[in-house]
Design a protein around this nucleic acid. Structure first.
Ligand code: MN
Ligand code: MN
Ligand code: ZN
Ligand code: ZN
Lengths: 137, 137
DNA sequence: ATTAACTTTGCAATAGTGTTGCACTAACTT
DNA sequence: AAGTTAGTGCAACACTATTGCAAAGTTAAT
């Protein structure tokens, strides 16, 4: 993905593109899976943890990425679809491979609609499936 | 719940009842919601964190309690049903109230059956719904 | 261009959760 | 009773997440 393209994307979500942000976004977009702060930190030795952290937070607030808490101990982040506003209808299942630790967005599997008991209201959900991915099987 | 009853329960799951274990189990059973290590620690000042931690781990291994990772930052634990073996068919949805931080087992809502793409196998899942509970509404 | 105002980054420190080694004690076995 | 095993308390540690603050970079206004 072109840097220019990324910057347009960020701007369209009201986030000023900076070198660091573009780099973080690019990495997430290109690897195509959910990455944790530590994962990202490893991929570019030189960049400060807190800088990446703040980039992710900014992205999250502006629906550029969504967090995935896969139970591995660190929250991971994956790029959102263009139209995503991270509301309950945009959410999908995530798959966590217990062998390789990779976490994948199952965009083809929206989170099923749940009818809660009287009195409960909800606006968010996480549906994580743990198992073995084709690559590890 | 009687201590004797608890001890029988633990024994039936091959866990030797001790004062600490009985206490931890009793607390989880009586509060009827999922509690974290820190929650438990608070409830009985005198008991060591690591002791509670190990009790929970032992319980978990023997299907006496199940972990709930509700995204709050600490894993919580709730008592299992008698027949539970924590396999995919025993799992249910959990509700996390973002106002009060309480996490509740929705035992009436089993985790829906999901058809994954070819090549994926799974044996566990977490389905957390975030919203506001009746008490906080 | 120069200054002022605002934003982003790097660094260091901190809080919180989870986890383990080790020594001590309680419980169980023979 | 002596030996063996299991459970507990304490302290230390690893790791994730988060923040204050100062330095560097950007933008906007004179
Ligand atoms: Mn996703
Ligand atoms: Mn439950
Ligand atoms: Zn895998
Ligand atoms: Zn509530």
């Amino acid at each position: 993905m072109e840097n220019k393209e990324i910057d347009k994307k960020l701007e369209s979500k009201n986030v000023k593109p900076t070198a660091m942000r573009t780099l973080v976004y690019k990495t997430l977009a290109e690897t195509g899976k959910a990455l944790s702060l530590a994962d990202l930190e490893q991929r570019f030795e030189k960049v400060e943890r807190s800088t990446i952290f703040r980039a992710l937070k900014t992205f999250e607030e502006n629906f550029i990425v969504h967090p995935v808490d896969d139970g591995s101990g660190s929250v991971k982040y994956a790029v959102c679809d263009d139209e995503c506003t991270c509301n309950i209808h945009d959410l999908h299942v995530h798959f966590y491979c217990t062998r390789c630790g990779r976490t994948r967005c199952m965009k083809e599997l929206p989170i099923p609609n749940i009818k809660l008991p009287e009195g409960y209201t909800y606006d968010n959900a996480q549906f994580i499936i743990n198992g073995v991915c084709p690559r590890c099987d």
